[in-house]
Each structure stands twice: as C-alpha cells, then as structure tokens.
Amino acid sequence: MLDSNCPPERAPARPGWVYLVGAGPGDAELLTVRALRLLGAADVLVYDNLVSQSVLACVPDGVERIYVGKKASQHALPQGQINQLLVDLARQGRKVVRLKGGDPYIFGRGGEEVEELVNAGVPFEVVPGITAASGISAYAGIPLTHRDFAQACVFVTGHLQDGSVGLDWDMLARPRQTLVFYMGITQLPAICDQLVAHGLPASTPAAVVRRGTQSAQKVVTSDLGHLAEAVKAAGIVPPALTIVGDVVGLQARLAWFQPEEAS
C-alpha cells in the first residue's frame, strides 16, 4: 500500500491500453511507485517467467493472470502470439499490464512488443524497471563501476536468437571494464574461453548470481579460468547473471545482503 507521502498519480490506468512494466530483479520492494499503482489497477496481467512470486503477490486477487513465460527451449507462447495477445486484450477495452522481469527494454523484448502495438494502433506506456545488472550486482556486493577498476560497463546477451554466442570478443576483452552477461549460463564455458582467448587474463575475477535480490540468492565467485567449473560444482542453473571484471574482487568485502535461506 502506498502511503500519503507518495507523489500524486500522473494518470490512472486506462482501458484499451497496454502498460509494459518492469518488475525489477525480484525483490518486490524494488518495484517503482508507478509499477505498483498499475498492478493495482489492471484488468489483466500478462507476465513472464522471471517475475518473482513476491512481485506477483502485489497483484490483487481479481486481476486475470496470463502466464507467457519462456525458459530454455520451453515457451508458453511464441513471441508472435504474445504480441497478438496484447493487441487483442487491448482491443477488448481492457487495462493490460505486460509485466516483465527487470526492465522491458533491456533484453526484455519490449521493443518488439511495442512495435506490434504501434502497428496495430494500440496506445501504450513503458514503465522502466531496475534491470537485473544493476539490482543483482548491488545485492551481491559488486559495484559495476569503480574509479580504481572499471570506467565502463557493458551489458551483453549470452544467448543470441540463433543460439550462438558470436559476439565482438575483441571489444569485450578490453581492460578496465565490467561485463554483465544476461542469459549466459548454458554458454558459460564458451564465454569464458573466448574472453581468455581474446586477451582477458584467466585470473580476472568473475561471479555468477542466481535468484539475485531474493531470499534464495546464491553468489559464486571465481576467476575467469575456473568460473564454469565452480558454477557447475555449485549446481547453478539458469536463470542467472554473470559478472566479469576486477570489480568482482570487491564482493567479499562489500556484500551486505543476507538471504533469509542462508541465515
């Protein structure tokens, strides 16, 4: 429940609109004020696999819920059908919240869905969310930039549409930057090997975080040369976030979040 000190609502949810809302990295307290208001006013919720249970608990019981989540090789609906579903629901005069983990425009296919809405003449609004890179790294104790270690940060998809990892490895292997790989666990050995092959030292600190910002958060740290082995030994499976760079060396000192399941 929002308290009286919150700013006044800019515009209430309107029928016949689609709201692409970022759910953040998992902790429901990281939802934006706008996101929470729209969840409370929605007629129908169309949500992804990466939306946490604590965020879903913020949705009123009377809201219709449609799950369209994607896991590796398991899609509840193909992307084209999701796009059409949003159009159809809006044309029924409903207030549609399309809820996505993290931020809709950072590896969330939000741009594809908005293009479809524009083509169909459906009004929409995009509500940013805290993307996994910034939220999860903060809860894991890893600053993405630091004057002593990293003057740049690169967000990378570890899983291209064709299933490959044909990335610009020369650019990614440059020193004094932090790399954050989304959706890269299944290709982690190849990612580590390519970075080392293109000049990044095998001793570079690296981490993988699963269920970041949530009670089940698990952080595995290693160096780039041994990261894939450490992740396998820890039983880490997707979804998880990979962070590579000297800033990871600060994790042991800067970690502050104590997951409930680990306490």
Rank of each mutant, 00 (worst) to 15 (best):
R253P: 00
S164Y: 06
Y67E: 05
F149M: 10
G111C: 11
P25N: 13
V156D: 06
D246G: 00
G184P: 03
A233W: 07
V59N: 09
L99D: 10
V21C: 12
R65L: 05
Y67H: 07
A90F: 04
Y19S: 04
S137D: 09
V51W: 05
C6E: 14
D48T: 01
W169M: 10
D27K: 01
F155M: 13
V46E: 03
G26P: 11
A240I: 04
G121W: 10
M1A: 11
A190S: 13
P60D: 05
N119Q: 15
R94P: 10
H146E: 08
R174L: 14
R91W: 00
Q214T: 15
F257G: 08
L86H: 08
G121Y: 11
Q217K: 10
N119L: 14
K100F: 05
N119A: 15
A197N: 12
A28P: 04
R34T: 13
V51H: 00
A42H: 08
A190E: 13
V156H: 06
W256N: 04
A13H: 03
Q84P: 00
D246K: 15
G108S: 10
L99Q: 06
D162M: 04
P12S: 13
V122W: 05
I236M: 01
G26V: 08
M171P: 01
L2P: 02
H146A: 09
L20P: 02
D43R: 08
L89C: 06
L224W: 12
Q194A: 15
A76C: 13
Q151M: 07
E116H: 12
D103C: 11
Q151D: 11
A230W: 03
D61H: 13
T32Q: 13
P60Q: 11
Q251K: 06
S54F: 03
L36C: 02
R65H: 13
L39T: 02
A255F: 01
Q214A: 07
V87T: 12
G93N: 14
F107D: 00
G135R: 09
R147H: 13
L20H: 01
L99N: 00
G110D: 07
M171V: 12
A233H: 14
G141D: 12
I236P: 08
V55S: 11
Q214E: 13
Q194F: 00
H75N: 14
V248H: 06
A42E: 06
G245Q: 14
E29I: 03
G158L: 09
E115V: 03
V154E: 10
P259M: 03
V127G: 09
G121V: 08
E261D: 01
E229F: 02
V126D: 12
Q79S: 14
A152I: 09
V33C: 07
G245A: 00
E112L: 10
A152M: 04
I236H: 03
Q217P: 10
C153H: 09
P60M: 09
A23I: 11
